[in-house]
Nucleic acid binder design. Structure first.
Length: 798
RNA sequence: GCCCUCGUGGCGGAAUUGGUAUACGCGCAACGCUUAGGACGUUGUUCCUGUAAAGGAUUGGAGGUUCGAAUCCUCCCGAGGGCACCA
């Protein structure tokens, strides 16, 4: 009998599916576990080996949990709205729903061929009207609570995709999807007030079991900073420029104020003879994207307005400048310039000849800005205070005089939720000339996406839906008068914000999901996904979830208890896999050659789970050899009744290691331990008994389910291995009685001796000093100190 | 520019979190075996000196803390990722 994965894998996959092995039960006496992977976007390229890595890891967790006696929910679905299907439709004239259907079929086949234990009865699809009915319903609730609103603001506009991009979607000044440089354009957009949840999105992270770097990412993105808003009155005017700073302790060092070109007071402030120069400058900045403006480190520019304002703390006159490095939407669009204590301000002052006034002691301001905290000088009554003190005291002073106040600022901005595209959920709003924007009544949801002939966005920037008159023209739900449908659609994230909730009750037509079912399953116990989603998707879905919690739809305030990430699988050349580079590894090929178990085990073995690792075809072969060794070992020793203590100990030690490594997502070292055990077993075949083999197979089952199931049967079992209990190790058998004690002299290893594990320091010292090698190193030098680390080493210092 | 992660043999990586550096796999080499296969088995494989015993060096580099550092601290170099005049 040879190990032939092709013969056994399909058989067991069918067996598990036929017998509904992975069906999750709503409400059970067993404790629940909700194990979640990010649902894939079914692209035309098919499943990526990177998907396999995350899915296999969570499949291992899910299978182990079931064996541990949990009622496990491990679902899968499709995040199927999005641009690629639409762009394909534009190119080939095939309706996106057709393309998506075909891609899903392929993905489903590929995922099934991996032997993943998904509960397919709960499969969802964001493009199904029965699903997006509830995506639209959520939008209506947001609208009713004033969290969805329209605003005419400069948005990031991709001239190629003809689509407005959220601030967060702009990568390097370019469209995240197509790479075209983004330009600024004003358009009426639907916005979601995520900023209202900024504090909770930061503060609630405390109670969650997310990797630290994920928490940091979220916190950094929201970018909360406490500071002071200071009023600078414009000279000879009653107008006030409000400036935000985190360093009010440097207020006496202000030698200019810089405002954004879009600042509301700009027109009033620019005066002859600087009028023309300033206007030209403003005009030029309009042609730059926000990215360009903030990018140009060397070319930090500005222009004097001709106006002055008054520093409230000392009544000094301060010049007002315009600089396009100041962004209108952050911090009120005005900054105070303190050249002595801010790097950027220092450069700015050097370039334009502004005064550099030292107010914090500790640096050499003739050479560079001193940006650290220190003691104040040249600061009137505040001189002598530390920066920390002065920040408090100066702010209090300003507040008392009504010239400033403590404020909080966030980097996070409200979320632009409109897309001018076809392949997305229609925004369920009707515009009435009398009533304004009116939500579509809930009983009329979903607003179905109509069939169109032309998918191309219109050149005016409107969605293709705008051209379907019979769809657009409707009666106002409120007054019955003539009205027009909103033609924008929702972004990709709309459907993926809440999909994990739908898995709890995927067929419900009356509610997003039954509350009791949500209460049973949520929060998700372990959520794994790619590093590319740890900021946006995580933040957005937490926001929506919190909102739904506030209106009583969800039972908890956070959706995910534990979140991990899996590193990207790179091509063999260390670069990202891409069609154009021709370095893509197709999981189908690997399965065809080696089988799913080899692919699974290889992806777990290739390196640390959270790090990016390059594909190595030769290592894949090594993993196959390992599985074949397991196979041959079981076939050869299955009737052996031997019960050797040494071997028993080894397999219990393996048991401990595997159990612990899985929980810490250290799959690579778990496999290594397996290999060691199998190598040992192979060299000691006569000592290997059936009991040992069975325990080994139970431990291997989550990693390589097919071969384990087959060998379980081969060893004479009728029941599936996945109906067995996860093995517990015997602590007595895991203990080591003897250890190799390392003997160091002056911190260098000089000898090793085998001693009993609980040897005392005195005994260890006596034994160590007897060793010939040790004596040679000590000679007749005096022993100053002996350090003894139980079970590890003894260090003799001479 | 700022922030995060990281840097260990020919390669992917391991190291109980301050206690034997290089586990496991790949590759390579020698020997053996065979139904010549995706072969298999045994042994060896960080570097330097040495036939060997043994000794010395070594975790990107330079310092430091410590009886003891891949691990902690400071500076520097390099790679990847994120953010970006964020005040």
């Amino acid at each position: 009998m040879k190990y032939n994965p092709q013969e056994i894998e399909k058989k067991w996959q069918d067996f598990w599916e036929r017998n509904n092995f992975w069906r999750a039960q709503d409400f059970s006496d067993k404790p629940k576990q909700y194990i979640l992977v990010e649902f894939p976007y079914p692209s035309g390229e098919g499943l990526h080996v990177g998907h396999v890595r995350g899915y296999t890891a969570m499949d291992i967790i899910a299978r182990k949990r079931r064996m541990e006696g949990y009622n496990v929910l491990f679902p899968i679905g499709w995040d199927a709205f999005g641009l690629p299907a639409e762009n394909y439709a534009i190119k080939k004239g095939i309706h996106p729903s057709k393309t998506v259907e075909k891609n899903i079929e392929n993905y489903r086949r590929q995922i099934k061929s991996l032997g993943l234990s998904f509960d397919w009865s709960r499969e969802i699809n964001t493009t199904n009207p029965k699903y997006y009915k509830w995506t639209q319903w959520i939008f209506v609730q947001l609208f009713k609570k004033g969290l969805a609103y329209q605003a005419e603001i400069p948005i990031n506009w991709c001239p190629s995709c003809k689509i407005g991009l959220a601030h967060e979607e702009v990568v390097g000044g370019k469209c995240e999807r197509c790479g075209t440089p983004v330009v600024q354009k004003k358009k009426k957009q639907w916005m979601l007030r995520i900023t209202k949840y900024a504090d909770r999105l930061i503060d609630d992270l405390k109670s969650l079991d997310f990797l630290d770097e994920i928490k940091t990412q979220q916190i950094e993105w929201i970018g909360r900073s406490y500071g002071t808003e200071i009023d600078f009155r414009v000279k000879d005017s009653d107008k006030i420029i409000k400036v935000f700073t985190t360093r009010p302790d440097t207020l006496f060092g202000v030698t200019a104020v810089v405002i954004a070109p879009e600042h509301p007071l700009v027109d009033e402030l620019i005066k002859p003879p600087y009028l023309k120069e300033a206007k030209d400058y403003i005009e030029r900045s309009k042609h730059k994207t926000e990215f360009e403006r903030t990018k140009l480190e060397k070319e930090k520019t500005g222009v004097f307005t001709g106006s002055y304002c008054i520093n409230p703390v000392n009544n000094e006159e301060v010049a007002v400048w315009i600089g396009d490095y100041v962004i209108a939407t952050y911090g009120g669009g005005a900054v105070m310039v303190v050249p002595a204590h801010d790097k950027r301000d220092y450069q700015f002052a050097k370039k334009y000849g502004l005064e550099i006034k030292e107010v914090i002691k500790g640096g050499d301001i003739s050479r560079e800005a001193f940006v650290e905290y220190g003691r104040l000088i040249n600061s009137g009554e505040f001189s002598g205070m530390t920066s920390q003190e002065a920040i408090e005291k100066i702010t209090q002073w300003l507040e008392k005089k009504g010239l400033g106040k403590k404020t909080v600022h966030y980097k996070l901005r409200d979320w632009i939720f409109s897309r001018q595209h076809y392949w997305g959920e229609p925004i369920p709003i009707v515009h009435c000339s009398k009533c304004g924007p009116v939500p579509v009544p809930e009983e009329e949801l979903p607003v179905q996406l109509p069939y169109v002939e032309k998918y191309q966005p219109t050149t005016t920037g409107e969605s293709p839906l705008a051209t379907i008159e019979e769809w657009v023209n409707v009666r106002c739900p409120k007054c019955g008068g003539p009205a027009r449908r909103e033609t924008d659609t929702m972004p990709n994230w709309a459907g993926s914000n809440w999909y994990f909730m739908r898995y709890c009750d995927p067929q419900n037509d009356d509610r997003l999901a039954d509350f009791d079912k949500l209460k049973y399953w949520l929060p998700v116990d372990w959520y794994d996904g790619g590093p590319e989603h740890i900021t946006l998707h995580l933040l957005y879905s937490r926001f929506i979830y919190k909102f739904l919690y506030d209106i009583g739809v969800t039972p908890t305030s956070e959706p995910y208890h534990k979140r991990t990430l899996h590193g990207i699988v790179l091509a063999q050349d260390g670069r990202k896999m891409s069609k154009s580079l021709g370095n893509v590894v197709n999981p189908d090929d690997v399965i065809g050659k080696y089988g799913a178990d080899t692919l699974r085990v290889y992806e777990m073995f290739m390196g640390p789970f959270d790090q990016a690792i390059a594909w190595n075809p030769e290592s894949v072969n090594g993993v196959f050899k390992f599985l074949r060794k397991v196979w041959n070992l079981v076939i050869e020793c299955k009737n052996n009744q031997e019960n050797n203590l040494e071997v028993l100990k080894k397999v219990h030690q393996l048991n401990k290691k595997i159990s612990e490594d899985i929980e810490q997502a250290k799959f690579n070292t778990a496999i290594a331990a397996f290999m060691e055990f199998v190598n040992f077993a192979q060299a000691n075949k006569e000592k290997i008994g059936k009991k040992v083999l069975e325990r080994m197979l139970l431990l291997l089952a989550p990693f390589a389910p097919h071969i384990s199931e087959e060998l379980w049967k081969v060893t004479g079992h009728q029941r599936s291995i996945f109906e067995e209990k996860w093995p517990e190790y015997n602590p007595e058998l895991v203990k080591e009685e003897t250890i190799l004690l390392v003997i160091q002299v002056n911190g260098k290893v000089r000898d090793k001796i085998e001693v009993s594990a609980d040897i005392s320091q005195e005994e260890a010292k006596k034994l160590a000093l007897k060793q010939e090698k040790v004596q040679n190193w000590i000679g007749n030098k005096e022993i100053k100190k002996v350090i003894f680390v139980p079970k590890k080493l003894i260090n003799i210092v001479v």
